[in-house]
């Protein structure tokens, strides 16, 4: 795994802008989870495909995403 994306899921508002800008299309809203705000928070489907570009984190209006890279 070259990169890792962590979501502070309890702060996510499910706006999907992260999914909109992900070049690998691996960010989705996790409909199996409803956070304390009542939203389905964002999550990554397959972390192995992540290139650590941080696009999702840069556009996140609520700063819920941390990106790490090897």
């Amino acid at each position: 795994m070259a990169a890792k994306v962590t979501f502070a899921q309890d702060r996510c508002k499910g706006c999907e802008l992260c999914a909109m800008v992900c070049p690998k299309n691996i960010v989705i809203l996790d409909t199996s989870v409803t956070n304390r705000k009542g939203y389905h928070p964002a999550a990554v489907t397959d972390m192995a495909l992540c290139i650590g570009c941080a696009s999702c984190a840069k556009i996140c209006p609520d700063s819920v995403i941390t990106v790490e890279r090897l």
Binding site: A57, K58, I65, E68, R69
Partner: peptide, 9 residues
């Protein structure tokens, strides 16, 4: 792993 993006101070 090194952090490449996190919430600003």
């Amino acid at each position: 792993m090194a952090i490449v993006y996190q919430k600003s101070k």
